[in-house]
Amino acid sequence: MNPSADYLSTMLRIRAFEEKAEELYALGRVHGTMHLSIGQEATAVGVSSALREGDFLLNTHRGHGHCLAWFGSDVNLMMAEFMGREAGYCRGRGGSMHIANVEANNLGANGIVGGGLPMAAGVGMSIKMRKTDQVCVVIFGDGASNEGAFHESLNLSSIWKLPVIYVCENNQYAMSMDIRKSANVEDISQRACAYNIRGITVDGNDLAAVHDAIAQAAAECRAGQGPVLVECKTYRWRGHSKSDRQLYRTRDEVGEWQRRDPIPRYATVLGLTDDQLEAARKDAQQVIDAAVVFAENSPEPDLAAVMEGVYA
């Protein structure tokens, strides 16, 4: 891939969004729950940077980053949705776990572990029937790879050579469950062999490695060679959600992964000085601060519209 400052600024924007989300929750300015992707930014940006406008995305519950990195993403609409406002992507009906931007073929985050996997096969079928060269990327976690839906979806995509890129964002823990205790394979990508498709594991904190793996998978999908399973090994710095005491891992382990922070790592690839990185960080912060102002100035949904949208 060609290095780009845009990728760095998107990662910084994701980091700033997540930190702001955490702060807003702590201040009691949002309710509900959230799943923060701090530490996983390189996977989000690496995936979308290797795809094209018009491709499809199915996302996870830990999906703020993927949504922000996706084509045409508007951070104001993201923040407004996060804060439950009418101006949000889903008019405040979806919230953190269900942010979608269907106009950009972002078919949404998903509150169900593995929930997007069966749908991805259908998007792949649709692409094949419509004879376009789109691809569908479905993001899921290490935990989802133990769901039956994972098997059904990979098998279907394999037998029909559907253009689906399965991206397992392996952040090591399914809530508290260590992947080393819940799967008897070293790499989730090994499971590809059960479906006779290509599987690859990359360093999910290395933006270029993620980008290149996805670019190759997309090329294979567009050439009609069928699905690919790409595992991105990464780590979530925060707990599973807001109420996680993190009894299942050590501070040392978290600290070790924090030293593999994908953001300064990519700044080094770009040859930026610390001051330049800090300046970029401040720019991202300003964008997020402005998004909060935008969201807070957006009206709450009208109570009379609570039934709106149940049926088309």
């Binding site: 499809f56 749908m119 259908g122 998007v123 079928m125 419509r130 569908c136 279907l156």
Partner: peptide, 10 residues
Amino acid sequence: GACIGAALSG
């Protein structure tokens, strides 16, 4: 699920 995905994509 494939019906849903196909429906969402035209």
